[in-house]
Amino acid sequence: MVDVALGTALAAIGAGVAVGFAGLGSGLGQGIAAAGSVGAVAEDNDMFARGIIFSALPETQAIYGFLIAILLLVFSGLLGGGNPLNVTSGLVAIGAGAAIGFAGLGSGMGQGITAASSVGAVVEDEDMFARGIIFSALPETQAIYGFLIAILLMVFGGILGA
């Protein structure tokens, strides 16, 4: 059996929360945006490219979660054979994972709803494309906050750059 330090195990939970919740939000958001895009393309073939753009927007939250998870795995010693983390840093890792995980969940769902709505608006009136993109980009900010806080927690919690 592999011997994993408690702090490293906590960081693994943090990594799971990061990619799990961010991926959940991203998947739901992308699902609703893609469902709207399929409806739009069924009526108008020219909507394919624009539908893909709107459907791809909620992908970013999963990417942020994935990045944080990879960083946690690498710097906690689970990947790449670095030093194991102590318990305090492990708890910080859970905080970092939760930051991007929950922010990504809300952001992904919000972005998906806005993107699906924008697809509807664009297929009705193609002049709405630019405005639809701007509105759809707004819920990205919450995921960026979560990502930044996760990075800061890792830096000042002794996980990154220690």
Partner: peptide
Amino acid sequence: MFPYAYPNARVRAR
């Protein structure tokens, strides 16, 4: 909201 995304996009296209 999920079940309405597809039909509403089609309807809005029309």
